[in-house]
């Protein structure tokens, strides 16, 4: 069951990421990124992170990507054209990304035994419920960082309003 979920949604995520890379028009890239985020939400759910799966759908696919699509439409962004800079980026980009991938997967595969296996749903050591455990840790031990994030959001709102305002 979990292997099937992993293969289907992992494959969907990889296909969406590759499509983001290959598409020329930004709106197509944005829509394929939505596919990646939705399939990652299913993978979070299969790893026992129900709260994060919901937050991924609501925050990432629902808020951030809609903001991206709005900006793409607002700026009327067309297809990107190839320039001499993009040719240099092709020469550096693909080998660099392949090198990062080889390094990461070498480390993960060589530690594969120690990492163990994932079971559907997951089991926490003391908790009965994922959301109960997250909220109890978030509102007791990590209360100060949680409050600081609200200040960060406030600063981001003010910054966005000031930056996007029309110059007088």
């Amino acid at each position: 069951m979990q292997l099937a979920l992993f293969l289907i949604f992992g494959g969907l995520a990889v296909a969406g990421a590759i499509n983001l890379l290959l598409q020329k028009h930004p709106i197509n890239s944005a829509l394929s990124l939505v596919v990646v985020m939705m399939s990652l939400a299913v993978l979070y759910w299969s790893l026992g992170a129900e709260f994060l799966a919901a937050a991924q759908v609501i925050v990432y696919s629902g808020a951030i990507m809609v903001l991206f699509v709005f900006v793409i439409m607002l700026l009327n962004s067309g297809e990107e054209e190839n320039t001499h800079g993009s040719r240099a980026a092709y020469i550096a980009g693909f080998p660099g990304a392949a090198a990062i991938f080889c390094l990461l997967s070498f480390v993960f595969l060589s530690e594969s035994k120690a990492l163990g296996v994932a079971n559907l749903g997951g089991q926490l050591s003391q908790a009965t419920n994922n959301i109960v455990e997250i909220s109890s840790v978030l509102f007791t031990k990590l209360l100060l960082p949680f409050e600081v994030t609200s200040v960060l959001i406030l600063v981001a709102i003010l910054g966005a309003v000031v930056l996007a305002r029309k110059e007088q």
């Binding site: 979990q2 292997l3 992993f6 992992g10 995520a13 990889v14 990421a17 590759i18 983001l20 890379l21 930004p26 890239s29 944005a30 990646v36 993978l43 790893l47 991206f68 900006v71 793409i72 700026l75 962004s77 990107e80 054209e81 190839n82 320039t83 800079g85 993009s86 980026a89 092709y90 550096a92 980009g93 693909f94 660099g96 990304a97 392949a98 990062i100 991938f101 990461l104 997967s105 993960f108 595969l109 530690e111 594969s112 990492l115 163990g116 296996v117 994932a118």
Partner: peptide
């Protein structure tokens, strides 16, 4: 499913992101 498979999926997504970051010319 071995945890390593999830990590390798994350590595694939990350390196695709790196490649797209370097290759794409549109700022969005």
């Amino acid at each position: 499913v071995p945890i390593a498979y999830y990590l390798i999926l994350a590595a694939i997504l990350f390196s695709t992101g790196v490649a797209a970051f370097l290759i794409k010319r549109n700022i969005i």
